[in-house]
Simulated assay, not measured.
Amino acid sequence: MNSNRWNLPVPVRDGQDIVFEIRSVRHAAEFLILHWPDSDRGSWKHLAAQIACLDVLESEREPEHARRAFVEAAKAAGILAEG
Rank of each mutant, 00 (worst) to 15 (best):
1 M>W: 10
47 L>E: 06
21 E>L: 15
1 M>I: 08
74 A>D: 04
37 P>G: 00
52 A>S: 09
75 K>F: 10
39 S>P: 02
41 R>P: 00
57 L>F: 14
82 E>M: 15
5 R>V: 03
37 P>I: 04
17 D>V: 09
11 P>A: 05
28 A>K: 04
6 W>Y: 14
83 G>Q: 09
74 A>S: 15
80 L>A: 08
30 E>N: 10
57 L>A: 08
24 S>C: 07
61 R>T: 08
28 A>I: 05
36 W>H: 02
81 A>K: 06
50 Q>E: 09
72 E>D: 11
9 P>D: 07
11 P>H: 14
35 H>E: 09
68 R>I: 13
15 G>I: 04
32 L>R: 01
6 W>G: 04
4 N>F: 15
14 D>F: 00
39 S>L: 12
61 R>K: 14
5 R>Y: 08
38 D>S: 13
46 H>F: 01
74 A>R: 02
5 R>C: 08
56 V>K: 04
17 D>W: 09
26 R>N: 11
9 P>S: 15
47 L>S: 08
75 K>T: 11
25 V>C: 11
2 N>A: 13
39 S>E: 12
32 L>D: 01
25 V>T: 12
9 P>A: 15
66 A>G: 07
52 A>T: 05
21 E>A: 15
67 R>H: 08
42 G>D: 02
26 R>P: 02
9 P>G: 12
19 V>Y: 03
64 E>C: 05
20 F>S: 06
39 S>W: 11
58 E>Y: 13
13 R>V: 06
55 D>P: 00
27 H>V: 15
2 N>R: 12
53 C>Q: 04
29 A>R: 11
66 A>F: 00
42 G>A: 08
73 A>G: 06
79 I>W: 00
67 R>W: 10
81 A>E: 06
49 A>K: 03
2 N>P: 08
78 G>Y: 07
